[in-house]
Design a protein around this nucleic acid. Structure first.
Length: 886
RNA sequence: GCCCGGAUGGUGGAAUUGGUAGACACGCAGGACUUAAAAUCCUGUGGCCAGUAAUGGCUGUGCGGGUUCAAUUCCCGCUCCGGGUACCA
């Protein structure tokens, strides 16, 4: 009997589907639930690549394993199907994006099914389905109708928002404006990133470090546009706190911490010489106030004009103008040479009354803190550079006591910058009753803040880097906002009964003029007339792709519900997600956004948990080998030939270096899972994806590796599927021991997501069985169950050959018995001065003095002890023996 | 620059976190089967040295130090690679 994987895999995939083996029932009587989630894919036109099955196989193994352990498992799949490529295709061909999207989903679904992944397809969701995005729109309405109560650190309905009397007195418009300023979702003029290539705005998170658009790589520019924004910074503290209790990779947590970017410090008011205004700065180092020798305001600071003296006005205006023309790319990229111009104005340092000049410079950003800083060149590297360039005074106020003397003297002389801790000097003022001399940084900050607060010129403040989330895009293929802009400027949202607001059919999908979405061309759809006869226009922007993925994990719980987004009872049973697996590329974007939405929903009582994803795991990217010349030019793989383990360019014979690179069409190193399935079978693909290495690391695809695991499955079939190898009677103790160890090891490895070592152990076991020649039916059955989560098709087939009815997926995972794992003796490695010399087999329960005696009596021991003095013998029971001689 | 990861045979990777480094695979070499090849099976396989051989010794986890009876694992100082971030006061 041959191992015909193609036939076997088709047969069992059909069986699973027909018998709904992986259907999840909302059986609340089972207290053991396990919600295991994959990051759902964008169904691109090119189909699945080998990176997808990596995470999916991992979750599938865990899901199958948990099911075999009696858990009620929720393991769904769906499509993050809004997105640019479908729209671009629509622009080119005139076909509605839904057509191509649905086709792509069909391809993806078929491919995923061909891998034998056990999803409950009855729960499939699709973000572009009106039945789904109805609720995305609904959540948007909830966000719009929520304000954040700072005191309670909690989102609350705007109906509960207290409106101050003086606002009420100003009339209804003022009240509405007041409420708008508190809503989590608001519509306003904003300086936004605009990608001219995509004709779309981008969120801060979508702009890369070099000022390019994450999606297309083209540079983005600043633009002022009316846009929908979400006030995610209000949740900054909650988002930070929530991270603490999550079982997430440290790196991802770190990235979220950094992105939120909390900093604590103080705001301090500086009086301006000759003006009745004050200049407020934010600083994390209020303790260095005595060292503030000048101030800097951002070119965009609203006070620039007022502060600047007439004789400097021209210079300042020019500088501000130039700065505004510079893209942010230039501003950060330009070799960091600091620029700036003096306003002519002086401010008064509140701690010592000294007059210090106020400058304008673009190294101070308007979007952070107050857009103005006090500059302490002696203790801040940026201020130091600036002071050096413009010859501003550098007053050292902190003695770096611990530093090396040469450096310390330079710092004290103001010739070097010191940002670390030290002891304050020159930091007192008798008249104002403040001194921090002799204190260290921590005490200094505390003392100064207390003093500032007492004098009412400053207060402790917290700042966050995270900005409002720009939540609209100039696209057709996204969720329409359930929003009407009325001719009088009022904004209203649709009622729940009016949802979903679906997309209109368009003739053309080209973007509108002046950065408007294609929906600006949707005549009839666009115009609305209110009951009062008022005319209005629908919002033409659509939501970003993140919207649908912000809550899809909730919809899986109750995907067909058309009354509510999901039933509360079901949500309570299934949430939170126990294990979430996906790529690191979503470390900040998706994972921050969905945590934010989830917390709002939690505050509104719509979900029962504060955090959505308890354990997160990132699978590593799968790369492919690629080849480059000595000069670094990449050569497509079809032009490369291998000789004696070296690589040469086929036409020129030039020797090439093998490197790892992302799979790409240009390098022709893309591996298509369909080809692998055809050639080796789905079980081999699954096994190889898991055997390559640890799940979380980047690893290169090697076709020969598939051959390795496929050989293993071939041997499994050849041995276990043939009844003549399977006997009755007593099992051999060695095999029994190996079996129980395998059961234990594989279980533990699955729990730890260490699939590579689990597979390795199954190989060891199989090799042992083959060597033995025969095993009992009981041994074989147990092993096949252990193998089944990894290679389900072959396991089902063998299970059936053994005469069983029904699916092995519904069997119980075998238990192991410690008694088979124990042995009477242990082969001790004996080392002398740490070097392994020989081994000695001794009873496991032998007393240490006996062990020492036996070791020294061993014939090989003499050689190492002779002529030396025995110092001591270290015996670690059942581990190692080390003899120390001198 | 700063913050996280990482570096182990020709290759992918193991090592119960201080206790036999190189499991398991790939590749390679030799052998069996075959007219031959593929497939399959068996044997060997970190490097160096000695020995006809069984075997024995030395060396070895990016580099340099240290702690320890014992270090891939812990500490200090570097080098290189990957990811994140970037004038955030």
């Amino acid at each position: 009997m041959e191992y015909n994987f193609t036939e076997i895999e088709k047969k069992w995939q059909r069986y699973w589907e027909e018998n709904k083996i992986f259907k999840t029932y909302d059986d609340f009587s089972n207290p053991k639930k396990y919600y295991i989630l994959d990051m759902f894919p964008y169904p691109s036109g090119s189909g699945l690549h080998v990176g997808h099955p990596e995470g999916y196989t991992a979750t599938d193994i865990v899901a199958r394993y948990k099911r075999m352990n009696g858990f009620n498992v929720l393991h769904p799949m769906g499509w993050d199907a809004f997105g640019l490529p479908a729209e671009q295709y629509a622009i080119q061909t005139g076909t509605h994006p839904a057509v191509i999207t649905n086709k792509n989903c069909d391809t993806f679904r078929a491919q995923i099914k061909s891998l034998g992944l056990g999803y409950d397809w009855d729960r499939e969701v699709n973000t572009t389905d009106p039945g789904y995005f109805k609720w995305t729109q609904w959540i948007f309405i909830q966000l719009y109708n929520t304000w954040f109560d700072e005191a309670l650190q909690k989102g609350r309905p705007v109906s509960e928002l207290p409106v101050p009397e003086e606002i009420k007195k100003q009339g209804d418009k003022a009240v509405q404006r007041y409420i708008s300023e508190k809503r989590l979702a608001y519509y306003d003029d904003a300086q936004v990133w605009w990608c001219d290539h995509c004709r779309i705005v981008c969120a801060n998170e979508e702009v890369l470090t070099d000022g390019s658009h994450e999606k297309c790589g083209n540079p983005v520019v600043r633009k002022n546009l009316k846009q929908w924004m979400l006030r995610i910074p209000l949740y900054a503290e909650r988002l930070l706190k929530g991270l603490e209790k999550l079982d997430w990779p440290e790196g991802v947590k770190e990235m979220q911490y950094n992105w939120i970017g909390k900093s604590t410090g103080a705001e301090v008011d500086f009086e301006l010489d000759g003006l009745d205004e004050k200049l407020r700065v934010y600083t994390t180092r209020p303790d260095t106030l005595f060292g503030a020798t000048y101030m800097v305001i951002s070119p965009e600071h609203p006070g620039v004009k007022q502060i600047t003296l007439p004789e400097q006005a021209a210079a300042v205006e020019k500088y501000a103008n130039d700065a505004s023309k510079k893209s942010d790319l230039d501003r950060t990229d330009l070799s960091r040479e600091k620029t700036g111009v003096f306003t002519g104005r002086f401010a008064i340092n509140p701690v010592n009354g000294k007059k210090i000049p106020v400058w304008v410079a673009d190294y101070v950003l308007i979007g952070y803190g107050t857009g103005a800083i006090m500059a302490v060149p002696a203790h801040d590297t940026r201020d130091f550079e600036f002071a050096l360039k413009f010859g501003l005074p550098i007053d050292c106020i902190m003695d770096p006591e611990g530093a090396e003397p040469g450096l310390r003297n330079k710092v004290l002389a103001g010739k070097e910058c010191w940002t670390e801790d030290g002891i304050y000097v020159n930091s007192s003022d008798d008249k104002r009753g403040i001194s921090i001399n002799g204190l260290n940084k921590e005490q200094g900050i505390k003392t100064i803040i207390e003093w500032l607060e007492k004098m009412e010129i400053g207060a402790a403040t917290v700042n966050y880097k995270v900005r409002d989330w720009l939540f609209s895009r100039q696209r057709y293929w996204g969720e329409p906002f359930p929003v009407i802009h009325w001719e009088d400027g009022e904004i209203s949202l649709l009622a729940e009964e009016e949802l979903p607001l679906t997309l209109p059919k368009l003739e053309k999908y080209l973007p509108g003029e002046n950065g408007e979405s294609p929906l600006a061309n949707a005549g009839e759809w666009l115009q609305v007339t209110g009951k009062d006869g008022r005319r209005g226009r629908r919002e033409t922007n659509t939501m970003p792709q993140w919207a649908g993925s912000c809550w899809y994990y909730l919809r899986y719980i109750d995907p067909k519900n058309d009354k509510v987004p999901f039933s509360a009872e079901k949500e309570k049973y299934w949430m939170p997600v126990d294990l979430y697996i996906g790529g690191t590329e979503h470390a900040v974007l998706h994972l921050l956004y969905s945590r934010f939405w989830h917390k709002v929903l939690f505050d509104l009582g719509i979900v029962s948990t504060d955090e959505p994803f308890m354990k997160l795991f990132n699978q590593g990217m799968i790369l492919a080998y690629a080849y480059e010349t000595a000069t670094g030019a990449k050569i497509p793989v079809d032009l490369v030939e291998e000789r004696d383990g070296k690589y040469y360019k086929r036409d020129s014979g030039e020797e090439l270096k093998q490197i790892m690179a992302k799979m790409s069409k240009s390098l022709k190193n893309v591996v298509n899972p369909d080809d692998v399935v055809r050639k080796y079978g789905a079980d081999s693909l699954r096994l190889y994806e898991m055997f390559m290495g640890p799940l979380d690391v980047i690893k290169p695809w090697a076709d020969n590796g598939v051959k390795g695991v496929s050989g293993f499955l071939g041997r499994v079939f050849k041995f276990f599927a043939h009844k003549e190898n399977i006997t009755g009677g007593e099992e051999d103790p060695e095999i029994l021991k190996e079996l129980h160890y395998t059961i234990k090891k594989v279980a533990r490895d699955i729990e730890d997501l260490k699939f590579n070592t689990a597979i390795s152990q199954m190989m060891i076991f199989t090799n042992a069985c083959i060597k033995k020649g025969k095993v009992t039916h009981d041994t074989a059955s147990r092993f096949i169950k252990v193998l089944s989560p990894f290679a389900p098709h072959i396991a089902e087939e063998i299970w059936e050959i053994y005469g069983n009815k029904g699916s092995i997926a519904t069997e119980e995972y075998p238990a192991y018995d410690e008694k088979y794992l124990a042995s009477d003796t242990f082969e001790y490695p004996v080392s002398f001065n740490g070097k392994l010399r020989f081994k000695i087999e001794l009873p496991v329960d032998m007393a240490i003095p006996e062990i020492e005696k036996s070791v020294l009596a061993h014939p090989n021991a003499r050689k190492w002890v002779e002529g030396k003095q025995l110092k001591k013998i270290i015996v670690v029971p059942n581990k190692i023996i080390n003899v120390v001689v001198v």
